[in-house]
Simulated assay, not measured.
Amino acid sequence: MPIFEYACSACQHEFELLVRNGEQVKCPDCGAGKLEKLLSAPAAHATRTAGGLPISNACPPSDAPPCSPGCCRM
């Protein structure tokens, strides 16, 4: 069950909600049903066995700039 972010068109309240299949979503503040689904970044999960985030192995060599697409050594 994914968590989605919404903005209410009636009261402008922004909130996150765990949405089950086929569930009608309403604003928790005013109860309005006219909502805009917001674009949100997916969460990354790291495990000890993987050695950190999956992008860590894609970093450029140490003589490259500290930050580049897909990697930041700061």
Rank of each mutant, 00 (worst) to 15 (best):
M1C: 04
I3N: 09
E5K: 07
Y6R: 00
Y6I: 01
S9D: 02
H13Y: 06
F15K: 03
L18T: 13
L18W: 01
V19I: 11
R20E: 07
N21Y: 12
G22Y: 04
V25M: 04
K26P: 02
K26L: 11
K26M: 05
K26V: 15
P28T: 12
G31F: 13
A32N: 13
G33S: 14
G33L: 07
G33N: 11
K34D: 14
L35D: 00
L35G: 01
L38Q: 14
L38M: 13
L39Y: 02
L39V: 04
L39N: 08
S40M: 03
A43R: 08
A44P: 00
H45W: 06
H45F: 10
A46L: 08
A46R: 12
T47Q: 01
R48L: 11
T49V: 03
T49H: 05
G51M: 04
G52N: 09
G52Q: 09
P54K: 09
S56D: 15
S56F: 14
S56V: 15
A58P: 00
P60R: 13
P61A: 15
S62R: 13
S62D: 14
A64R: 01
P65S: 11
C67V: 11
C67Y: 02
C67A: 15
S68D: 14
P69Y: 01
P69V: 00
G70D: 10
C71G: 14
M74W: 12
M74P: 05
